[in-house]
Amino acid sequence: MTASPTRHSAAPLAANDRTNLAASPRVKLSRRRISIDHPDPRAGERLLADALGAVDRDALDGLLSQLAKASAVARRPDQGNLSFMISMLKSIAPKDSLEAMLAAQMVCVHVATMRCACRLACTDDVPQQESLTRALTRLARTYAAQMEALSRHRSNGACAITVRNLSVQDGGKAVVGNFTQHASLIAAQPGLTDAAAVTA
Rank of each mutant, 00 (worst) to 15 (best):
S35I: 10
T142M: 07
N178Q: 13
N178F: 05
P77S: 08
A174P: 06
R119C: 05
I86Q: 01
L63G: 02
P77K: 03
M85Y: 00
I34F: 05
R33G: 01
Q129S: 07
L21W: 02
A117W: 01
L185A: 15
A54I: 02
L120R: 13
T137A: 15
C116E: 06
L52S: 07
A23Y: 03
I86M: 04
R57N: 08
S91E: 12
C116T: 15
S30W: 04
T6S: 06
A104M: 07
Q146M: 14
S35Y: 02
R119P: 00
A15K: 11
L120E: 04
T133E: 14
N156C: 11
G157R: 09
Q189P: 00
A15G: 05
L150A: 13
T133R: 15
M114R: 05
D37Y: 01
G177R: 07
M106K: 06
C122F: 09
S167G: 05
A117T: 03
A72G: 06
Q129P: 02
R141L: 11
G62W: 03
P5L: 12
C116F: 01
A200P: 13
A196V: 09
L98E: 12
Q79C: 09
L67Q: 01
T123M: 07
R42G: 00
A11D: 09
I161K: 09
A104K: 02
D17P: 03
N16Q: 08
A49G: 13
H110P: 01
T142A: 08
L132T: 08
A200E: 12
P94F: 10
M1S: 14
A197M: 05
D58H: 12
P39H: 11
Q128C: 07
R46A: 15
C122P: 02
